[in-house]
């Protein structure tokens, strides 16, 4: 079904484009929000991302639904990074600022009962640099080398930013009711 929808979009069918947009817009909005943090900016990112998606869709080769969604997410992530770069929101990490910052405690998240929306909100609240590296590494699955190339930073800087992001997130999680699990882990 999705394949037919994509093929119709490749032929420029406006109705199919609307259906595809409705199917993915909220999922992609969350991706954009995880990077840019603010909703108006996320809408701008989505606008540019959907334009690119529909214009480059004719050259897209469909394999499966997961592959198509991964491609959509990649487009949104790239647009988000472009947006952050244009806003100079991304800090410049040209020097190796790995300062050995380590988290004192490891927060073990419970397998159930964790509010996904709460985690999502905490990630959005991370500083832009931490958030970007954490999103790219922990959520999207990029390596530190790829992140360093994308953000034009050193690999160690990426590792350092990730470490700090994790520490801050775990601190917030501890402060939001996960102390028991963390203490038990300790």
């Amino acid at each position: 079904m999705l394949r037919e929808l994509i093929e119709q979009c490749q032929r420029g069918n406006a109705f199919a484009q609307r259906r595809l947009y409705d199917h993915y817009v909220h999922r992609l909005l969350r991706v954009a929000l995880r990077y840019v943090g603010q909703e108006p900016e996320a809408e701008e990112v989505l606008m540019n991302a959907f334009l690119k998606i529909f214009r480059s869709l004719p050259s897209f080769t469909y394999r499966d639904d997961n592959g198509f969604e991964a491609w959509l997410r990649r487009v949104v992530v790239n647009e988000s990074l472009l947006h952050l770069r244009a806003k100079r929101a991304l800090p410049t990490f040209q020097t190796d600022d790995s300062d050995g910052y380590e988290v004192a405690t490891a927060t073990q998240l419970p397998n159930d009962g964790l509010e996904a929306e709460e985690i999502y909100r905490l990630i959005q609240a991370l500083p832009t640099g931490y958030r970007t590296v954490f999103n790219l590494y922990a959520i999207e699955g990029y390596s530190h080398r790829e992140i360093a190339e994308q953000l034009n930073i050193a690999e160690n800087t990426s590792k350092s930013q990730l470490s700090k992001a994790r520490a801050l997130l775990q601190t917030w999680l501890l402060n939001n009711g996960y102390e028991r699990e963390a203490k038990r882990q300790l």
């Binding site: 969350r30 964790l114 922990a138």
Partner: peptide
């Protein structure tokens, strides 16, 4: 765990 948790988010705006 973070990844899996975010994967359970509904297809709706926050």
């Amino acid at each position: 765990q973070i990844r899996q948790t975010l994967g359970t988010l509904p297809d709706a705006p926050p």
